[in-house]
Write a protein that binds this DNA or RNA. Structure first.
Lengths: 248, 248
DNA sequence: AATTTACCTTGACCCAGATCAAACCGGAAA
DNA sequence: TTTCCGGTTTGATCTGGGTCAAGGTAAATT
C-alpha cells in the first residue's frame, strides 16, 4: 500500500456520524456552513503518528472514525498515555501553536480538520462552537481526574478491570446496547498501549488479563477479542465508586 | 472562636486581588456589573469542608485567598487528590447540579461565589465569562494530564520534587520573583495531604523529604518551611520534561 | 515450507514503596 | 508544667508489581 495514501473523503456535515456529539453539535445551519468551508478530512493508517509533541500544529480536528491516543514521554523513555481519543473527540487547543502531546492513530483513523486561524475566528464571532468545546473540555477534565484516581490508588487488577469496563461501555453505546449482562468486543489496544495507559508494564497487564480470565471475570477468543459474561462483576473488580452521576 | 463565624467581606471587583486572573478576567465593565450583582463572599476555616461529593451545589465560585483541595474517595477509604485550588481557580461546573468531588479548605479560605442560575444566564448572554472559563479549563486539563504522568510513571522521589517545584513556582509568581536560585516558602499541605496528591503513603512522603534534605536538594526549618538552594537542581530531581511551553 | 516479525505469555527473582509499629515534637489546653 | 494530641519521623518487615529472560503464536514475507 502506497506510503502517503491519504484517500480524501468528503462528507456532507448533514450525514456525518459525529454531527450530534462533536464540537459542531450545537451549531446552527449558518455556523455549520462556515465550518463546512474551512474543514477538510485526513486519514491515517493504524500505527501512524498524527503529530509529535512540540511540533507546530496549524489545525484543530475532530476524530470521525477510529481511535487515537495522546501520550507523554520522558527523556529516559518512560511513557504515559494521557488520553484516548474516540469518535467525536476533539484534538488540539485553540490559541496554542504547538502540540502538547504525541498523537498517534491506534486504528485506521479519519479526522475532520479545521485550519486553526479561521476556526479561532469562528469561535470569536459565534457562540455555539465555544460553548460546546467548553462542555467537552469539562467532560475530559472529569475523565482525566477519574484516571488520576486509577493511576494513584488502584491495584493492577482494578486498573485492568476499569479499562475493560470503559472500552466495553463505549462499545456498547456505539452498538446502542445497555452495558448489562454479557457483551463482547475487540480490544483496540496492544498490551503495551494498555500498560502505557494504566501506568503498568506490559508483563503485568498480560498477567492480570490472564488472572481475570482464570477467575471467569472475562473470556478471551484469540488475544484481542474479549467477552464479559457479567458486567456488574467486572465493575466490582474495578472498584469503581461510580454512584456519582445518578444524583439528579 | 465561634463555629459559624464566616465574617462577610465585601470587595469592590475593581480592587479584587484575582480580578485579572479569575473567570472574570476578560469581562468588560458591563459584564462586571452583572457579576457584581450576583456575587457574595464566603469564608471557611482551615480544615473545613466546603462541599461533599454528591451534594447539591447551587453556586459556582472563585478562590480569592487561601488554598482548597479536590479529592476523590473510594468506598474502602483510599483517597486521591485530583486538584489543588489556588487563588483565582474556579470551583464548580455550570450545568451540573451536584459536586463531583469533595472540596476542602486546607488553609483559611475566601471564595467569591455566584448563584448558579444567574451565572449560567450570564454565560448564555455574554461571551467573555465563557471564553475565559474555557481557557482556564483547558489549562486545568493540561495540569491534570501532567499529573497523570507523575502518578503513572514517576518515582516517589521524583513525585516529591515535582510537588515542591510546583508549590515553589506558584509561590514565586505570587511574590513576583523568578523561580531561580534560592527561594523558600511554607508548605500549605500536611504530609498526608501530599501523600493523597502524589499517590503515596504519608510515611513514604516523610522519608523522601528527609532524603532530599539529607542530599542537600532542600533545607527545612521546622516541618513546614522549605528552602530551595538551587531550583534547577530540584527540577532535575523532578525529571520534568518541561521544554514544552517555550516553543512559541 | 521456512523464516521473519510483532505480539503475547509465563517464570524466576528483585526492589521500591506499603504496612505495621514505635517514638518524637511542638503547640494548645488543663 | 504537665498532659495531650495532631502531625511527623524512623525502623523492621512484607509484597505487588517491576525487571530480566525464555518461549510461544500467528500473520506476513521469502
Amino acid at each position: 500500500m502506497p506510503m502517503q495514501d491519504m484517500h480524501i473523503v468528503h462528507h456532507e456535515c448533514g450525514d456525518c456520524p459525529i454531527r450530534h456529539r462533536a464540537v459542531c453539535a450545537r451549531c446552527d445551519s449558518d455556523e455549520l456552513t462556515r465550518l463546512e468551508q474551512i474543514k477538510y478530512y485526513r486519514s491515517y493508517q493504524a500505527g501512524q503518528t498524527v503529530i509529535w509533541s512540540g511540533d507546530r500544529m496549524d489545525f484543530v480536528a475532530s476524530v470521525v472514525t477510529g481511535i487515537a491516543t495522546l501520550t507523554q514521554t520522558m527523556e529516559d523513555g518512560r511513557r504515559q498515555m494521557v488520553g484516548l481519543l474516540l469518535p467525536s473527540d476533539f484534538v488540539g487547543r485553540p490559541g496554542r501553536a504547538t502540540a502538547a502531546y504525541d498523537v498517534t492513530a491506534t486504528t485506521d483513523l479519519v479526522m475532520c480538520c479545521f485550519r486553526k486561524k479561521p476556526f479561532e475566528d469562528l469561535m470569536q464571532t459565534t457562540p455555539h462552537v465555544g460553548q460546546r468545546l467548553l462542555e467537552m473540555t469539562l467532560d475530559e477534565l472529569d475523565a482525566a481526574r477519574e484516571w488520576m484516581l486509577l493511576l494513584g490508588r488502584k491495584t493492577a487488577r482494578e486498573k485492568i478491570a476499569s479499562l475493560l469496563g470503559i472500552i466495553a461501555r463505549r462499545d456498547a453505546t456505539l452498538k446502542l446496547k445497555a452495558p448489562k449482562g454479557a457483551l463482547s468486543f475487540d480490544l483496540p489496544l496492544t498490551r503495551e498501549e494498555m500498560a502505557d495507559y494504566l501506568g503498568l508494564t506490559l508483563e503485568t497487564v498480560s498477567r492480570q488479563i490472564s488472572a481475570l480470565k482464570r477467575d471467569g471475570v472475562i473470556a478471551l477468543e484469540g488475544k484481542r477479542h474479549v467477552t464479559i459474561p457479567d458486567f456488574d462483576r467486572l465493575m466490582e473488580e474495578a472498584a469503581d465508586d461510580s454512584d456519582g452521576g445518578f444524583l439528579d
